[in-house]
Design a protein around this nucleic acid. Structure first.
Lengths: 118, 118
DNA sequence: TCAATAACTCAAGATCAATTGAGATGTAAG
DNA sequence: CTTACATCTCAATTGATCTTGAGTTATTGA
């Protein structure tokens, strides 16, 4: 992920409704959710929702596919992990103060930790 | 870090000049840099720079202290790692697709990996 | 084909963010 | 005390973003 992509992703996530949509879709898993169901969860009108979903899709954070009458949206996991990796990258120049606590917080949850590179 | 703080931080980072300032200050270390030196690195006028630095400070991403005639700005590492932890948190509900690759990217750099929680 | 459903598009207005330039404030040195 | 320097503050302008409401397109089933 380069700076331009990171700025697009950060801009997309810096809006309350969009951040909530992404968090909802991440927990929804690979199948995602229909636009209508997302709108209901957000309490948003269809045109407002469409505006934010289009914004997220342009930023590469979500993807869509038609499923009958509905359009299902799902999180693009690579884009999210890419953004996080981009933010973590800065500390790799001799300043592990940022990434070490961030990664340590993972140890407190159910996520599998990767093997440390020796 | 709660949602409001995360939105503030994301909003602050979603602007080219501010993202660059933060990345510059992270690599600059705990001593930070004088506003003038940051402005020179960014090619920004003093009032424009002040605007962005104030924005970053309100978001909690940088802090300032006077040093003679200058004001030195430095990165707030806790805020950055807190934001990353907030973004990583989503994957802790049974969806490690986001955090695992992000953390794996750390293995490719010079950062020390924390011990996995057993 | 017709009606119903799901979601998108477009234009208008409201709100918010970024840049500029002029001027003010605080600090140090002569 | 005066000058120079570093930075901040304020008002004005421009541009971007968000929301709303009306209308449109696509899909399904009767």
């Amino acid at each position: 992920m380069d700076e331009t992509q990171a700025l697009d992703a950060l801009g997309a996530l810096s809006q309350e409704t969009r951040l909530r949509i992404v968090r909802l879709l991440v927990t929804a898993g690979p199948d995602g959710m229909a636009a209508g169901a997302i709108g209901e969860a957000m309490g948003a009108t269809s045109s407002r929702l469409s505006f934010h979903l289009t914004h997220l899709e342009h930023a590469g954070l979500v993807q869509s596919r038609r499923d009958g009458r509905s359009i299902r949206y799902s999180a693009v996991y690579d884009a999210l992990s890419g953004l996080i990796a981009f933010l973590l990258q800065d500390c790799c120049q001799g300043h592990p103060e940022v990434c070490t606590p961030a990664v340590a917080s993972l140890s407190a949850c159910a996520c599998p930790s990767p093997e440390p590179a020796t």
